[in-house]
Design a protein around this nucleic acid. Sequence first.
DNA 1: TATTGATGGTAATACGTTTTAACGAAAAAT
DNA 2: ATTTTTCGTTAAAACGTATTACCATCAATA
Lengths: 333, 333
Amino acid sequence: MAGIADIAKAAGVSTAVVSRVINGDSTLRIAEETRKRVLRIAEEHDYAPNSAASSLRSSHSGLIAMVVHDVTNPVYAEILSGAQHQATLQGQAILISEASALDNQASRLLRLIGGRGVDGLILQSVGQLSDTALARAARKKIPTVLLQTELDADATLLTLPDIEAAELATQHLIDLGHARIGCLATREGLTFTQNRVEGWQTALHAAGLEVENSALEFADPAIDDGRMMARKILEANPDLTGLVCCNAVSAIGALEAASQMQIDVPNQLSIVAIHDIEMARHLRIPLTTVKMPLFEMGVRAIEMLSGSQSVSAGRVAITEQPVLVERSSTRVL
Amino acid sequence: MAGIADIAKAAGVSTAVVSRVINGDSTLRIAEETRKRVLRIAEEHDYAPNSAASSLRSSHSGLIAMVVHDVTNPVYAEILSGAQHQATLQGQAILISEASALDNQASRLLRLIGGRGVDGLILQSVGQLSDTALARAARKKIPTVLLQTELDADATLLTLPDIEAAELATQHLIDLGHARIGCLATREGLTFTQNRVEGWQTALHAAGLEVENSALEFADPAIDDGRMMARKILEANPDLTGLVCCNAVSAIGALEAASQMQIDVPNQLSIVAIHDIEMARHLRIPLTTVKMPLFEMGVRAIEMLSGSQSVSAGRVAITEQPVLVERSSTRVL
DNA sequence: TATTGATGGTAATACGTTTTAACGAAAAAT
DNA sequence: ATTTTTCGTTAAAACGTATTACCATCAATA
């Protein structure tokens, strides 16, 4: 209920002084004595600046919108957690949305983006978005970070070492003596999907092995989709002994498919997945994975938005290398 | 860049008309002809109302802040997903934060709450919050929904059938012939923790069984904590044959502990957990669970905030009854 | 004809900050 | 003693919308 004017009056100064004290404006100094007095009075009155008014005048809200495909996917949850952590450190807050919300024209998120209500935008796994939402953001010049997925907009692309991770996973199987290796990919058309598939192919080629097209499937990173992909691949290629999964959640589906088809993992089939989610250790068959810095990616995305870093720079790569975590789902042939 | 004034001028009307057309104000009708013209011109100019200005004038932002203990916990992720879904439907957006962020005094979230930048507040698993954050929200009369946890503030409490769920879980073990049954609870002092523990006790009493205090432990709903709790309980009570876990994530830890202690599940020990998370089917030993409407709870929380429902009503219960999902972690004794 | 009512629109104000430019006083430099 | 600098502060102007109260116009009723 108390406004800045009330505080100013009570402290015997102008509103400008109160504003500077509260916001810690550094360009213009305030006498230590008045500063303390204002602070004390503000505290007494339980004063907090009206955020709408503040945003209106200063034209930044401290809000960052983040869009992920699915919050319940542990991979995305971890990225979100990192972003949330860093945003808090920087005095910003995160507006979360699942991708499906972007289709809803009445979505408040879209209105916020259109109305410059957010200072930044983070898009993850958002493929087919040449439509309103992003187009608007781009036109409104809202700083945007794309996570793992290229899009025709002048936004910064933040990437993980996807090619390396897929190579590492595939090479691990090759080292174990496997020669016929399939790939459960994520959604087709996404940059990181392409990169991981490329890593898989590269490793096979380098070892002089054959790349079987019927051993490659694309779908969403969900358990059900993973099961279906695995079934399809395994039925088409009964002689397969290794499977690279581009997302750990798909791998869970693959384990299920193998079980249903009476294929023993790891004795008849070795499975390795990208992303070392916590659950990997606790599955029916503990999963061999390639660990990627997901939390770190969330942190970096936030840093890039508010950082002095190149605003429109083309792409930034997280250089921390993926590491293989061996468990029970892979085995020497 | 285009403001409401530009649109008004281009359409040959006043700004008031534009505002009414855009916001669909129902109190005052606008000629269909002008409505279409304004809409078309707004579209052409790619106009979207400045959200800060809009919030300032109308004093509501369409933002709802949600605080959960840990985003990566699948239980909480599902609640969040439900909230996000419903918020989108209602034209609102969700500001997500993990509980730890509330400790950070510079947190933007706190400033938003203090500065009436959010229309509502949802708090989950937030225990020790008699401090600034919530105190402010209460003083500022921000509508608040408490998820599963009482707090000394005049907020609405939204609850799941916790007692029933715990009774159901415990009764299932009793029906299987178990007589010595322990309980892995969540954090002490939270309302839902108390209720679940109560359900456990009630079921035991009703069956004339003993409630062993050394078979009850409290900790955070995390795998590591679950493992530690289970180990403690099992060491103190070697004759235990059943375990009720108040959170499925803790149960994963319990499975791990049992494995480390060479206790066979379900032959020597039956485990049943509350919350049927997707992973439950895919664990080393598929988990018997009690399914609760988590997504639905997120939905309801949002509905309650914007609904015409009793604003300050004491408590609302989700009446959908918990159902038992039998898998392989429980077995007749 | 005069009166009412409905319809479609306007002008101007308030929302509560942040920030710009200017200003007096005190201290330092000339 | 005068000029310059620095310091601390102020007054007033945006920021861009939603909304209130008021006003035409016109058709229909009395």
